[in-house]
Design a protein around this nucleic acid. Structure first.
Length: 255
DNA sequence: ATGGCGCGCGCAGCGCGA
């Protein structure tokens, strides 16, 4: 079973890129973030015509989530318990016996801002929810755009990023709090090297120069980690014309 | 260090992202 996550930065602009990627990477389920469109304008028919099932929770212009799957998606939940408001940043469903939680963690803007406070509160609510469901769902995947680079090896220039969003100690503590549930970072279970990124700024030729951050993650529960076969960041789509600034991250389990 | 980039919205240029 292959499970993947991808922040597509608008499904309207990226539809062909996503369909092409799914043709080349026939995963069981793909979680999308930043679809940026309400459910009524999500290109559901294009996915269904290619043999995919879709569930989505979107809004105009900002945020927006989807799960695209070969297998039925059941027990769908579109709101993170404990978080008020209408930001569409959470979508979870059960697929092939695995509870799949798809996330778009708030960016946080800058350290100390209202959005930063919201980000940390959101991560607290997430940890509470996951702690509550882990006994019921021993096979649990938590994936998405976390907007956190967990360690310095996930940052091209840690000194330049010090004091900035994505790397602050409270954000990293919130990430470790998720690992302590316990969940494991699938990519780091198979590749410990620095220089492995999932996001590169559109500016300054950052992708060509591999100046980026590893902020998109697939976390898995112990029962799944026993079965982890591999995890890769696929840089190929980032090299296309009009790419998303994020790369897909894909994990494979013996299921 | 931050402007460059790219998105939506909507028709100019701004808010936002990371």
């Amino acid at each position: 079973m292959k499970i993947a996550t991808w922040n597509v930065n608008s499904i309207g602009v990226r539809l062909e890129a996503v369909l092409d990627w799914l043709r080349d990477n026939p995963v069981t389920v793909l979680g999308l973030q930043e679809t940026k469109t309400p459910d009524g304008t999500f290109p559901r028919a294009a996915f269904e015509a290619a043999g995919w099932q879709v569930c989505c929770t979107g809004q105009k212009s900002y945020n927006g989530m989807a799960l695209v799957s070969r297998e039925p998606l059941t027990d769908i939940l579109t709101d993170l318990p404990g978080v008020a408001g209408d930001q569409k940043r959470f979508l979870t469903a059960t697929c092939n016996g695995v509870r799949v939680v798809n996330l778009y963690v708030p960016n946080g803007s800058s350290i100390g801002s209202d959005k930063y406070v919201y980000k940390l509160a959101w991560l607290e609510a997430l940890a509470s929810h996951l702690r509550a469901i882990l006994p019921r769902f021993p096979r649990l995947v938590v994936m998405g755009d976390f907007n956190i680079a967990p360690e310095d090896r996930d940052v091209h220039d840690p000194a330049a990023w010090e004091g900035h969003i994505h790397v602050s100690p409270p954000e990293r503590a919130a990430f470790r709090n998720l690992l302590n549930l316990p969940l494991a970072d699938c990519f780091r279970a198979v590749d410990p090297e620095p220089g492995r990124y999932s996001w590169w700024d559109y500016r300054q030729g950052s992708f060509r120069r591999n100046i980026g951050l590893r902020i998109d993650h697939v976390l898995a529960s112990p029962a799944l980690m026993e079965r982890l076969r591999g995890c890769v960041i696929d840089k190929q789509p980032r090299g296309r014309e009009r790419p998303s600034d994020h790369a897909p991250v894909m994990a494979e389990f013996d299921l």
